[in-house]
Computed example of a mutant assay.
Amino acid sequence: MYLIIFDCDGTLVDSQDTILHGLRVGYEAVGLPMPDRRTALSIVGLSLERAFLDLVGPDHADKVGMMSDAYRAAKVARRQAGLDHDPLYPGTREALDRLSARDDVVLGIATGKARRGVDHLLDVHDLHGRFVTIQTADTSPSKPHPDMIERALSETGVERHRAVMVGDTSFDMSMARAAKTHALGVTWGYHDHSHLRDSGAQMVIDDFEQLDAALAELLKLDREPA
């Protein structure tokens, strides 16, 4: 059996607009100026408190709790108003359907989102039943700590050399390397090709059409379902 673990934001869904909105609300809550777009999005993939701390630095560490609370409240309000519908990237659904139909593959999620955020994503895009293990910021330290992958391996019983982390940030790649699994970077998210390679990506792909070939090379996974 093989385990393919996906990050969410920047890998499965394009969430930059809703993330930026939440960050802006967090900064407004404590009266700090919002950083530029590129800097703000550079922390996507980290757990929320870790992300705000990286952005504001130790001088404003005392504000991180209030910023995080404001962000979460804004996300809940947007969902209740029907405004939080981050779109899937092109090819996401087809890739997940293709992989989840195989007898020799199980799928997982490892994300800096809270579990309720993942559940919302699964609800909005009707993706329930495809992931046998879901690891979130509620129960694990922030990436790049390997705990999320370690938990996924434990829950599925898959050996680490038969597992791969698919993600768009250096945090994902560093997490995979720390867990001694394979690391596959994608360029349609928040960190570029060189950033992914420098943090441990064994391969980097530019769209979901390249996913099967990359998995075949990394895991020796047959291109056709078992």
Rank of each mutant, 00 (worst) to 15 (best):
L3Y: 08
D7T: 04
C8P: 12
D9H: 01
G10A: 10
G10Y: 02
L12R: 05
V13N: 15
V13Q: 15
H21R: 15
G22N: 05
V25R: 14
Y27D: 02
E28F: 08
V30F: 01
L41Y: 05
L41S: 11
S42Q: 10
S42H: 09
G45H: 00
R50S: 09
A51D: 04
A51V: 04
F52G: 03
D54G: 14
M66D: 14
S68D: 10
D69K: 15
V76S: 15
A77D: 11
Q80T: 13
L83N: 15
H85A: 15
T92D: 10
A95R: 09
D97K: 10
A101H: 07
R102F: 02
D104S: 14
V106H: 05
L107N: 09
A110G: 11
G112W: 02
R115P: 09
V118P: 04
L121Y: 05
V124Q: 08
V124W: 08
D126Q: 11
Q135P: 03
Q135M: 06
Q135I: 00
A137W: 03
D138W: 02
T139E: 07
S142N: 00
P144Y: 04
H145D: 07
D147P: 08
D147G: 01
I149A: 03
I149M: 00
I149G: 01
E150C: 12
R151H: 07
S154C: 14
E155D: 09
G157W: 06
V158Q: 02
E159S: 15
R162P: 06
V164L: 05
M165D: 06
V166T: 01
T169D: 00
D172S: 03
S174I: 03
A176W: 00
R177C: 13
L184Y: 07
T187L: 13
H191W: 12
L196M: 07
D198Y: 11
G200T: 06
A201K: 08
M203L: 11
M203V: 10
V204W: 01
V204P: 00
I205R: 07
D207P: 05
D207M: 06
Q210W: 07
D212Q: 12
A213I: 10
D222N: 13
P225D: 06
